[in-house]
Simulated assay, not measured.
Amino acid sequence: MKKYLLPSIKMTLIMILLLAVLYPISIALLSKLAPGGGKGQTVTVNGNVVGYARIGQKFTQDKYFQSRPSAVDYNAAGSAGSNKGPANPDYLKTVQDRIDTFLVHNPGIDKSQVPAELVTASGSGLDPHLTPAAAKIQVKRIAAIRKLDESSLNILVDQYTDGPLLGMFGPSTVNLLALNIALDKMK
């Protein structure tokens, strides 16, 4: 028994040292090299912090591009999805309510045109990006409210669209915070 017990205790202590002490310390030190020093990359406008570059936030006014819904109400301390399956009645009701709300705020859009990402939460609940199509479907509403030309808003969306990673991995995306900041700067 001593033959197996002592090596097991040694291995447990080594793994505790590696995984509970050295690994977290190394990750904390590496995060200091990231933009924002591991505390998130803040976005400032006129000297005021207005959000984080990689964390989604809620835009409720119709004069802004609306974000993807969040299952955690954009709380970065509790990143999570809803964990409800696509056949769950509560989930289906939530999605239908989001579709109905979107259609009320975007008259002239048919239900079949509503991008899924505008009515379903991301896995983390904090996704700051939309596809260009999901941003452009909101252009008509914003142009009417702000009395701007739709073509200039479409150009703005194109300017804030990032292509796929390395030109081939993933979809093109639009960071909504950056887009809405640029929208406020338009005259």
Rank of each mutant, 00 (worst) to 15 (best):
V104K: 15
L18V: 15
A134G: 05
E117M: 06
D162Q: 11
L176R: 04
L18E: 03
S8N: 14
Y64G: 00
P24G: 06
K39S: 13
A20E: 07
P128T: 07
K39A: 15
A143M: 02
D127F: 05
T44M: 09
L5G: 02
Y23W: 12
S112C: 04
A135R: 02
G51C: 04
P128S: 06
T101S: 14
Q61F: 00
P115N: 11
I181M: 12
T173K: 04
T131L: 01
G170V: 02
G37C: 05
P89A: 03
L6E: 10
F59D: 04
L165M: 13
M15H: 06
P24F: 12
G85S: 09
K111F: 12
I25C: 04
A20I: 09
A87R: 11
G125P: 00
L176M: 05
A121M: 08
P7V: 08
L156F: 10
R98I: 03
I55K: 01
P132V: 14
Y64K: 02
L13C: 15
S122Q: 11
Q66K: 09
K10M: 14
N46P: 08
R146N: 12
T101H: 10
L5H: 01
V157H: 08
K140M: 01
I25Y: 11
R146A: 09
I181N: 05
L177Y: 03
Y23F: 15
G37H: 03
V50W: 09
N88L: 03
H105N: 11
L118N: 00
L156D: 08
K3E: 15
D100K: 12
S31R: 14
N83A: 15
D110V: 00
S31M: 14
H129M: 08
H129D: 14
T12E: 09
A28Q: 14
N106F: 13
I155D: 13
L176C: 05
I25T: 13
H105F: 03
V119D: 08
R54W: 08
Q41G: 01
L179D: 04
S8I: 10
G81F: 09
S124C: 00
K93D: 10
K111M: 09
L103K: 01
L19N: 07
